[in-house]
């Protein structure tokens, strides 16, 4: 255990935990967009930056990546942190001026409008979808393509993916609702910012509702070795 101070509060925390985890454990709010406990911390959105004092010097660190240490002093809302966070939100707002989640977070952090020229994106490039697809689902159907300002997320060459199982984890994990996911009749539609795919759904033997993409069943069988009849019924109709 180490002792640290966050915003003047003296806290005890397990070694190896990050500042963000310790803050969350203690109900201290630090904004973040690219962090999700399901995947490894990535440190890309920079919104979770906090000010720490180390060897007498103050610096900003990404709290999702920085592990707590004995005697650490953390400020989550210093002037420097707030000014930078606002600027980051202005940049995000310029990128995604019409995204509701981005607008809401901006307002929450005290930013009403952006000083920059505006584009019209929905995706904030936090890569959560990509990381979930790789680290949790294990199929890497989507990735980030191109470099720098041209960066986008998509399937290879924006073509229908051979490996995507249509599970929708990407849509579920997206913090700004940039990936649309809808089941209509026997078809699931996943709409990423730059391309889309359709998946045939399987019907539940008991209630008759369409509940899971056939590809997802194939993949789960492959992974687990379970027999096909395991997936005959939807979770609601199972014994």
């Amino acid at each position: 255990m180490v002792t640290l101070t966050i915003d003047g509060r003296k806290l005890k925390a397990e070694e190896g935990k990050t500042i963000l985890q310790v803050a969350e454990d203690n109900n201290i709010y630090i904004p973040t967009l690219c962090f999700n406990e399901a995947v490894k911390a990535y440190g890309a959105c920079r919104l979770c930056l906090v000010e720490i004092t180390r060897r007498g010097r103050e610096k900003l660190v990404a709290s999702c990546l920085y592990e707590v240490e004995e005697g650490l002093k953390v400020k989550t809302g210093s002037d420097r942190v707030v000014a930078n966070r606002k600027m980051l939100m202005e940049l995000l707002l310029a990128r995604c001026p019409n995204n509701k989640e981005v607008q809401d977070l901006a307002r929450k952090l005290g930013v009403e409008e952006t000083s920059f020229q505006q584009d019209d994106n929905q995706c904030i490039l936090c890569a959560l979808c990509v990381r979930v697809c790789q680290e949790v689902v294990g199929v890497s159907a989507i990735s980030l393509v191109n470099r720098g300002v041209d960066r986008q997320m998509g399937t290879p060459y924006y073509e229908p993916s051979d490996v995507c199982i249509g599970c929708g984890s990407c849509a579920y994990v997206c913090p700004v609702g940039a990936i649309k996911f809808e089941d209509i009749g026997d078809t699931r539609y996943i709409k990423w910012p730059n391309n889309k795919m359709e998946f045939k759904l399987k019907k539940c033997k008991t209630c008759g509702s369409y509940w899971i993409p056939e590809r997802q069943i194939e993949y789960m069988m492959e992974q687990t070795g379970l027999p096909p009849d395991t997936f005959d019924n939807c979770p609601d109709c199972r014994d």
Partner: peptide, 21 residues
């Protein structure tokens, strides 16, 4: 630098684009 930014973190990717504009 805008052309060479890897695009991973927001300030570099979006910031250099706006600075360039």
């Amino acid at each position: 630098l805008e052309g060479e930014s890897c695009g991973k973190c927001l300030p570099c990717r979006e910031g250099l684009k706006r600075m360039s504009q």
